[in-house]
């Protein structure tokens, strides 16, 4: 095992898959001289034929990724910032997601679309975006939201090997988070949640950057004898419903933490899944609580940003509420 950070884990996953499979290539804005570390040095190893700089033409190069995937390649397309996905929305939601279905299963689209998501710190509304939940509403897209370097690398490799379009969210707050990864080849399969901490009193389903925050809260509340179970879905589509329901049956209480906007988001979907499940519903001892970003665009001011983004304090308050101790 070795310690790497989240960006290095992504970088290693890219390198290994590009060595393993010659149909994998990587393209996006400034990928040959990346400002962040995810693509660092890739062009030196694989050359500009496979690490392709694109003009600022998101609809064009995302769509080109769709076409190349349909024609037998395995592109990884880098949006830089996931908020830029809106510029390519038609190609993502209407082409990548729908082509296989519309064409009666004739074609497969083994495409990964990645980009930096999350709160960049006073970068305001156009750059601090967490749109993963929005894409859950589009049938035909798989959605990956890793929270550790181990999961990042393993999920990236699984995403590249998957025969479907996969959106891969690189949460910038986690970029320098370190963790252990094995030396040998491994993947983390899509659709399998991970129990990041076992507990008995409250289930906290946490997404992406909310996982380390939930673990901090779990550590703090353990001192009071409150035992949190932290479930990391790791992929939102497919969603590991059995793992989430099993945890809720054990604890009887559910808090869902997601830094994305609240309405119709991933947290709402997870809550619905739990209350819809006949076996699980009866186990709930308290109403489910969501901890999300306030439903506004991200403001620039650090004061306003701190208020909008869900923190440990809000997770803890939600836990106390479902415990009946607010």
């Amino acid at each position: 095992m070795r310690e790497v950070n989240f960006m290095q884990a992504f970088n290693e996953g890219m390198r290994e898959e590009m060595h393993r499979d010659k149909t994998v290539f990587f393209m996006g804005e400034d990928v040959q001289l990346p400002v962040f570390g995810f693509a660092l040095g890739l062009v030196d190893e694989f050359g500009p034929e496979r690490i392709i700089n694109t003009p600022l033409s998101e609809a064009g190069f995302v769509g080109a990724g769709v076409g190349a995937a349909a024609a037998g390649m395995r592109p990884v397309v880098d949006l830089s910032v996931f908020g830029f996905a809106y510029l390519a929305m038609d190609q993502i939601a209407s082409e990548a997601a729908k082509m296989r279905y519309m064409f009666g299963g004739q074609v497969k689209i083994p495409l990964v679309i990645c980009g930096i998501a999350g709160i960049m710190g006073s970068s305001a509304a156009h750059h601090s975006e967490s749109p993963h939940g929005m894409f859950m509403n589009v049938p035909g897209l798989k959605i990956v939201a890793p929270s550790t370097p181990y999961d990042c690398k393993g999920l990236l490799k699984a995403a590249i090997r998957d025969d479907n379009p996969v959106l891969f969210f690189q949460f910038i707050q986690l970029g320098l988070l370190t963790g252990a990864i094995p030396d040998e080849d491994y993947i983390v399969p899509l659709g399998v949640a991970d129990l990041k901490r076992e507990g008995t009193d409250v289930t906290v389903v946490a997404i992406g950057p909310m996982v380390p925050k939930a673990l901090t809260v779990a550590e703090n509340l353990a001192k009071e004898g409150i035992s949190l179970e932290v479930v990391d879905p790791r992929t939102l589509v497919p969603l590991d419903k059995p793992a989430i329901c099993a945890s809720v049956k054990k604890t009887g209480r559910l808090v869902i933490a997601d830094e994305a906007p609240r309405t119709c988001g991933a947290a709402a979907e997870i809550a619905a899944v739990v209350v819809e499940d006949e076996d699980t519903f009866g186990y709930l001892d308290a109403p489910i609580q969501r901890v999300t970003r306030h439903h506004v665009p991200m403001p620039c001011s650090p004061v306003l940003e701190r208020f909008v983004v869900p923190d440990e304090g809000r997770i803890e308050a939600a836990v106390r509420k479902v415990m009946g101790k607010s």
Partner: peptide
């Protein structure tokens, strides 16, 4: 200009016809 919500990339002054800075290229 924008009560702290916009910052450097999103300034606007509608009183002088400055309809806003858009940080998304081409937006």
């Amino acid at each position: 200009y924008c009560k702290g919500k916009g910052g450097s990339m999103h300034m606007a002054d509608y009183s002088i016809g400055f309809i806003g800075a858009c940080a998304l290229v081409g937006g």
